[in-house]
């Protein structure tokens, strides 16, 4: 039964072009990040009448810049995409009436929520593989090859990072009765996490630390942020539990 539900989710993501959008955007993110890192200083130096002293200050791009761009772009576009594509998953079914057609069948309500989460996480992972592959190739061409294992670990941490926002959106979608309310809830959750991420001591447990950790791993640093990983995993688990419990009790 769970297999049927998850198959339906994957088919829906394909047929409604959500998968295509994710793949294209993440491919562009992966492709463009090392390009931007490499050629932004070049473009800056091409500014007309730029004083020579100023031009000398523009640093040569390095691998660190490429990784920084990749993380920045994946963060910005990734969060936006997962929020927009996830926030309607449950709310839309309730609004359209397909949730009722689903729940008159002998399935566990929590399976519906978990299948949506699992399918979305699967598509996100596949998208990150595409982004990482594009980024790896162009970084190798423009700079130097990245350490494979460490770069893979960075992307796993990126996946964990985006999974927090994906789950926020799914929770909002489950709690809300309409897509508009789901959108408000999803972006509200994003704002709360960003604010918490700016508070000293608290930010040690926030998703942002996972990106820092990923960058450290690739660039040869030795800092790790297990507390952030554990806290984010627990947060995702808690949000899923709340979403499942809510959906179990809700009258459709």
């Amino acid at each position: 039964m769970f297999r049927t539900l998850i198959s339906k989710e994957f088919l829906e993501q394909r047929r409604t072009s959500k998968v295509l959008v994710m793949f294209i955007v993440f491919f562009v993110v992966g492709l463009i990040s090392p390009l931007l890192a490499k050629y932004t200083p070049v473009l800056l130096r091409m500014v007309p009448d730029l004083p020579a002293d100023f031009a000398a200050l523009i640093p040569e791009p390095t691998l660190t810049d490429a990784i920084g761009q990749y993380l920045k772009n994946a963060n910005q576009f990734g969060i936006l995409l997962v929020l927009v594509l996830t926030m309607g998953l449950v709310a839309q079914e309730k609004e359209r009436g397909t949730a009722a057609m689903l729940l008159i069948k002998p399935i566990r309500r929590s399976s519906v929520v978990l299948a949506k989460w699992a399918a979305s996480m699967g598509v996100l992972l596949a998208s990150l593989v595409i982004a990482a592959t594009a980024c790896y190739i162009y970084t190798a061409l423009l700079f130097e090859p990245l350490p494979v294992g460490e770069f893979a670990l960075l992307n796993v941490l990126l996946w964990a990072y985006l999974s927090v926002y994906l789950t926020v959106a799914l929770l909002a979608s489950t709690l809300a009765r309409s897509q508009t309310m789901a959108a408000a809830g999803a972006f509200g959750g994003l704002v709360i996490l960003l604010i918490l991420g700016a508070i000293p001591r608290v930010n040690d447990f926030m998703p942002g630390k996972l990106l820092e950790w990923g960058a450290q791993v690739v660039l040869g640093g030795d800092k790790s942020y297990w507390s952030a990983l554990i806290a984010c995993t627990a947060l995702v688990g808690l949000m899923l539990a709340v979403a499942c419990l809510r959906f179990e009790r809700e009258e459709i």
Partner: peptide, 17 residues
């Protein structure tokens, strides 16, 4: 639900199926 069939008023379906 295993034993009953239900046709709600105005049944809704996945339009892409």
């Amino acid at each position: 639900r295993k034993l009953i069939g239900v046709l709600p008023e105005e049944p809704a379906f996945y339009t892409w199926m």
